[in-house]
Design a protein around this nucleic acid. Sequence first.
DNA 1: GTGAAAGCGCTAACAG
DNA 2: CTGTTAGCGCTTTCAC
Lengths: 334, 334
Amino acid sequence: MKPTIHDVARTAGVSISTVSRVMNAPETVTEMKRLRVQEAIDLLQYQPNGFARGLIYKKSGTLGVMIPDIENPYYAGLLRGMQDEAVRLGHSLMICNTDRDKDRLIAYIQSFYEKQVDGIIFASDALHPEYIEEMQRYRMPIVLASTNAPDYDIPSIDIDDELAAFEASAYLIDSGHVRIGMISFPPGDTISGRPRMEGFRRALREHGLKAEEAPVAYAAHRFEDAYAATGELLAAEPELTAIFAASDEFAMGAISYLREHGRRVPDDLSVIGFDDIRMAGMFIPKLTTIAQPVYEIGVRAVRKLHELAIGGHVEPLREKVPHKLVVRESSRSL
Amino acid sequence: MKPTIHDVARTAGVSISTVSRVMNAPETVTEMKRLRVQEAIDLLQYQPNGFARGLIYKKSGTLGVMIPDIENPYYAGLLRGMQDEAVRLGHSLMICNTDRDKDRLIAYIQSFYEKQVDGIIFASDALHPEYIEEMQRYRMPIVLASTNAPDYDIPSIDIDDELAAFEASAYLIDSGHVRIGMISFPPGDTISGRPRMEGFRRALREHGLKAEEAPVAYAAHRFEDAYAATGELLAAEPELTAIFAASDEFAMGAISYLREHGRRVPDDLSVIGFDDIRMAGMFIPKLTTIAQPVYEIGVRAVRKLHELAIGGHVEPLREKVPHKLVVRESSRSL
DNA sequence: GTGAAAGCGCTAACAG
DNA sequence: CTGTTAGCGCTTTCAC
């Protein structure tokens, strides 16, 4: 059996309060007893029971994290940032891979609640009001990482997707491309879907191109979807010279399709991605992309949640972090 | 404030024991009261406090997981399997990314212990005796996923690395390759390092090739290391026609190096990887590789840990799961 | 069938 | 400075 505070007290010959004190306020105990207690602790390998402390402090030192797809490298970077900051703050992370499954997500919210996590970080593209309401119903501190909720007063941290997409597209246009297609997340996706598409369209418009005629194909989330979408794009506009992909994985899917259909990248077509996942620098050709400071987003999300859990509020509520265009090999000037 | 069992009891007009009963043994309560209690529960959004239950049951319903590098897609697949099985069993996962940092790992073991996880899954290549002893000292159930410990009686589940490496190499030889190099994990790595190298050598030997003369270059863990190692390999043996990479990431690093130095894959050189991470099918060229059933390993690891935590022992102690050669585009017959 | 009460391991007044 | 005691929220005998 795990030793308890009573065991320590007994072998040290003191009361349990004294033991408790040497753990929480050592300076209030005489050196002699403190040493004796410390010895007993070491001897018994004593470690206070988290449940008992939790009951009293009403804190678990654990943060819940929801991510939609753990196999998506984008989230891996985010998690790393969160984890590092959590360690720094003395917290643990309870991670839930929702697989974009609604029931699973709701079940996890309840589980987080029962396990008394100190707060939840919701990292996802798809954020239905229903989820938010479920979380708010339990009144748990929550912050959004790499997404946001314009309709609710929930702290969030992400990049300016519209602007980033604008810059990616503008870069293509400035490189001489005129016939540009986009592989977008579904228009119903209000985070990485619509804003990036709007940024794309605005770039065309502001550069005197007909935004409405530019072909856009939708892909759900994965490589294969983008592969197929590229076919649609080319069918709609065979003369395409550039593609703006809303994620690096999409860019890879597009490049694969192009290769297998005799189009060279970047010689025949330029492709630009989004996110700058680790793989972007390993792919052949290396991806030109918009880099998101994912690690940083993870770190700040945890920090924000910590603040929120401690102080009850955070400043600023909605935080934007800077993105950056990274030019590598998958694009070229015309 | 979170409602407690007392609140429910009060609003339902019963004692707390009755409330407790409708949650844990509803059939022992008369329908009338049961309904009234259920109503109160729904009304107050009552959810029992995990700390209080934990104190009594001495179980947290949480499993601790240690992984060395969350950005390595190999572990993402593993985690997905674990997560899915954990959900099925009603458990949560507490994940720790050790970053191969010893202090961090030890700190996490203690944290797991304090938080009363029901057990630990250790998924890693590097497994120092010190870690094992630290974990055993706390007498927590532990299972090894995708690694093993020959010197200790610890349940483990992984593939037969030596055999898998043998088959990968034999495939290359059967395809007509004679001058084959290997990019290996460091020889000190007794899991994915030495066994895979021995499998490689045995294949050469059993096919009448001089195993000792085959060049082997070592790479730590990542793409960049393999990139550099490929240069060493080629310097040692410029006539190489095939490379066996001990991981898919190594294979990608090798292919990148080859591309950038004017060698085409698979036309000039064949490259075979190991693991079959998701990216293997997205890379250009698609990787020929040894597929590990990572998802399955994750699932079984959780199941094993569950058994161990419940029954105190598992059968069989060391489990091997089958691997599979997957031939794609990065290799060809001579 | 149901309530009162003890106790899980710990912290925090409260007395001494 | 230190020990005693009352809970934290819940489950579980044990009487009624």
